[in-house]
C-alpha cells in the first residue's frame, strides 16, 4: 500500500505520484478526492504535446528533446500513450524502449498509459496524469500521443505547445491542406530529414501554413534527424519562441481557460453518458432494444428518445 499520498506527492515522492495516476486511470473516487485536495498547488508546469503518425519518431524525438531540456536543468515528466486492444483491453506500452537513457535520471519521470478505448490520441486519464505530474513538481511535461491519423486532436486541449512530427513520403500536398491534425501544430518537425522527399514535405507544410495569413503565430517548420540528434537544438529554440509568444501575447492564459472549459464539458458528457448507459444496461434494456432495432420493431431514434426520457429528470437537462 502507498499511504499518505497527498503529503508525499508534494515532497516529490515518485511512488506516490505513480500510485495516484493509477488510481485516476482506474476512476477510483479516492484518487479524485486526493487530486482535488492538492489541485491548487499545481499550475507551474509548461505542457508540450508531441503528436504525429505511427513510426514518425515521436518517442525518439521526445527522448532527444528531454535531454536538451535536462541540460537547462529542468525537471521533466513524460506521459506516453500507446493504443489499447479494443478486443482484450490489453496493451503493449513500448515508448520507454526509445527512452532508456532517461531511465536513471532522477529528475525525469516517465509514465506509459494505454489509450483504454479513448479515440482522440490520448487516454481519458491523460489530463489527470498531467495534473499529478505538475503538482509533483515537474517544470516541463511532455505528452506523447498514440500514432495519429487525420483527426485525433485532443492533444491540443491538453497542452500549451503542440509539436506536429511529420515524415517524408506520407502523401502529396492535398494531405497537407486537409482539416484535422495538420491544423493543430504550433511547431512542425519534419523528422527523418536525411531521407528523400523531406525538403518537399517541409515545403508543402510551409505552403499550407502560408494560406492562412491571419495567424498571430506562424508555426515554424524544422528539419530534424532524431536518431542522430540533428536539428534538435533548433527545434528547442522554436518551442521556446512559441512559449515566449504564448506568454507575452496572453494566448497562454486564453488557451488554458479554453482548455479548462472543454475539459469541464467533456467531464459532464462523460458523467451523463455514464448515467444513460447505467440506466440502459439496467435489466439489459439496451440488448432488448437493440434486438428490436434489428428486427425493425423499433428504430434507433425512438430508442434514444425513450432512454433519454427515462433519465432526463434525474440529471435535470433542459
Amino acid at each position: 500500500m502507498v499511504n499518505n499520498i497527498e503529503n508525499r506527492i508534494l515532497e516529490n515522492d515518485k511512488r506516490a505520484a505513480a500510485r495516484l495516476i493509477t488510481m485516476l486511470e482506474n476512476k477510483d473516487p479516492e484518487g479524485f478526492r486526493i487530486l482535488k485536495s492538492v489541485y491548487a498547488k499545481g499550475g507551474n508546469a509548461y505542457v508540450i504535446g508531441i503528436t504525429g503518425p505511427p513510426g514518425a519518431g515521436k518517442s525518439t524525438l521526445t527522448d532527444k528533446l528531454v535531454k536538451a531540456y535536462r541540460k537547462k536543468g529542468k525537471r521533466i515528466a513524460i506521459v506516453a500513450v500507446d493504443p489499447t486492444s479494443p478486443f482484450t483491453g490489453g496493451a503493449i506500452l513500448g515508448d520507454r524502449v526509445r527512452m532508456n537513457d532517461l531511465n536513471t535520471d532522477k529528475d525525469v519521470f516517465i509514465r506509459s498509459m494505454g489509450a483504454r478505448g479513448h479515440l482522440g490520441g490520448i487516454s481519458e486519464a491523460t489530463s489527470a496524469a498531467v495534473k499529478v505530474l505538475d503538482i509533483f513538481g515537474s517544470d516541463i511535461i511532455f505528452i506523447e500521443t498514440v500514432g495519429v491519423g487525420q483527426s485525433e486532436i485532443d492533444i491540443v486541449k491538453n497542452c500549451d505547445t503542440t509539436i506536429m512530427v511529420m515524415v517524408p513520403g506520407l502523401g502529396d500536398d492535398i494531405q497537407a491542406i486537409k482539416a484535422g491534425v495538420m491544423e493543430i501544430g504550433d511547431v512542425f518537425a519534419v523528422n527523418k530529414a536525411d531521407r528523400d522527399g523531406s525538403a518537399r514535405t517541409a515545403r508543402e507544410i510551409e505552403m499550407m501554413l502560408d494560406f492562412n495569413k491571419t495567424l498571430a503565430w506562424r508555426p515554424p517548420v524544422k528539419m530534424v534527424v532524431a536518431t542522430e540528434n540533428k536539428g534538435v537544438d533548433e527545434l528547442v529554440e522554436a518551442i521556446e519562441a512559441h512559449r515566449e509568444h504564448m506568454l507575452t501575447s496572453g494566448a497562454f492564459t486564453t488557451r488554458r481557460i479554453q482548455n479548462a472549459k472543454s475539459e469541464v464539458v467533456s467531464l459532464i458528457k462523460e458523467r451523463i453518458e455514464q448515467s444513460i448507459l447505467d440506466n440502459a444496461h439496467n435489466e439489459d434494456k439496451l440488448s432488448t432494444f437493440s434486438k428490436e432495432i434489428v428486427s425493425r420493431a423499433l428504430d434507433p431514434y425512438t430508442v434514444v428518445e425513450r432512454l433519454y426520457e427515462e433519465i432526463k429528470d434525474t440529471i435535470h437537462i433542459k
Binding site: 489499447t84 486492444s85 482484450t88 483491453g89 490489453g90 496493451a91 503493449i92 506500452l93 513500448g94 520507454r96 524502449v97 532508456n100 531511465n103 536513471t104 506509459s112 494505454g114
Partner: peptide, 20 residues
C-alpha cells in the same frame, strides 16, 4: 501473451540494469 490476456504490458527493451 499478457497483452492478449488483457494486461497492460510496459516493455522496456534489451540490456537493462537492475536500477533501470
Amino acid at each position: 501473451a499478457l497483452r492478449d490476456a488483457g494486461m497492460e504490458v510496459i516493455y522496456t527493451g534489451l540490456r537493462q540494469t537492475a536500477e533501470q
